[in-house]
Design a protein around this nucleic acid. Structure first.
Lengths: 180, 180
DNA sequence: CCGCTCATGTAACTGGTTACATGATTTA
DNA sequence: TAAATCATGTAACCAGTTACATGAGCGG
């Protein structure tokens, strides 16, 4: 009953959501996510699914395979229980509330740039963030059409955050101008 | 001239900001950050600083040590250049714009909970986020008092994001209520 | 039949984590 | 002088990355 990693829990969640599916499907789901946090590499997913199966969180229908080489995994009762435990407070990963933001990280060190370069930095960040807006909207729409309201609402969170980061960048621009 | 990792770049930035300092100081700076992304473990920092030194990004004044066992590192010209290259567009890590948010990740799978449990999930998230507000404010104030305006502004970004996530949670609460 | 996607995996490498070990210096 | 902090590190472990290898099945 070792602690499950984030990746393992998410893989568990994907299998729960999809119903019986292959590791490949899980891999594609994660690889397709706009969040670069989930690389969805085979070298991560296949071992993770195997670990989950060995520990009884997933079960593999007809262990060898089906007619052709596919292994269909489904969530086991222990898996559903683990998923619930992950979501029901208290949340052990509550420490991760102060989320990681690469732009914020870089902002700490903007003093190394000239004010002109700093302005360019902000321009680039703003442009990149604005590009994300339709990506998020599409993703949200896709889920909604698929009838997966929870995922749609989850993606919606990214919309709030992107908007906030854009406001913050506007604020930075003003502050930097004042500093000159 | 291999690509530097985020951790290496941040370590570089910390040395640049502080001026000559020890690996220990870098470690403490990262460990003290409210962002749990930077664990600030010795096993990560010491090897990273060594790599940076070996590759010429940092220089170690009087390599052996000073009078007692301390190694004081300072940023080398190559280090400053790398720092600037990191900050000046185009940003290679622009892919990381869709930031990772553990609450969002969990939201995808909230369908596994009962509506009562879901409400509790939101309560817990909201409470945890609200706890962060003064933490961020303090951190911001600390930097401002220390005269480090850039860091203060960086931390300020977290404030925007936390506020946005709280709004999002309010939205989720409303949506969940509608779903019942 | 060619090429794409589905599907499964592995091997070498890298880098971070935990946990430990050591000793000097500072502060209560 | 005892405890805390400064300071340096290492070793075992683990998980993820990149990159490769293989083959079935399907659409044009």
């Amino acid at each position: 009953m070792s602690k499950l990693s984030d990746l393992e829990l998410v893989a568990l969640g994907v299998v729960w959501k999809r119903g019986p599916c292959t590791s490949y499907a899980v891999m594609k789901e994660l690889a397709g996510s706009p969040s670069s946090h989930w690389s969805g590499s085979a070298g991560a997913i296949y071992p993770a699914v195997k670990r989950l199966t060995r520990q009884g969180y997933l079960s593999c229908a007809a262990d060898p395979v089906d007619r052709r080489g596919r292994r269909l995994y489904r969530i086991a009762p222990k898996g559903t229980a683990a998923l619930k435990r992950w979501l029901v407070p208290p949340h052990p990963q509550a420490a991760a509330l102060f989320t990681y933001d690469p732009i914020r990280t870089q902002t700490y060190f903007l003093g190394v740039l000239s004010s002109k370069q700093r302005a360019k930095f902000l321009d680039a960040c703003e442009a990149a963030l604005r590009e994300q807006v339709p990506v998020v909207a599409d993703e949200c729409e896709r889920y909604r059409r698929a009838g997966d309201e929870f995922s749609a609402l989850a993606v919606g969170g990214a919309r709030y955050v992107i908007r906030a980061r854009l406001e913050w960048i506007a604020d930075l621009r003003a502050q930097f101008a004042r500093m000159e």
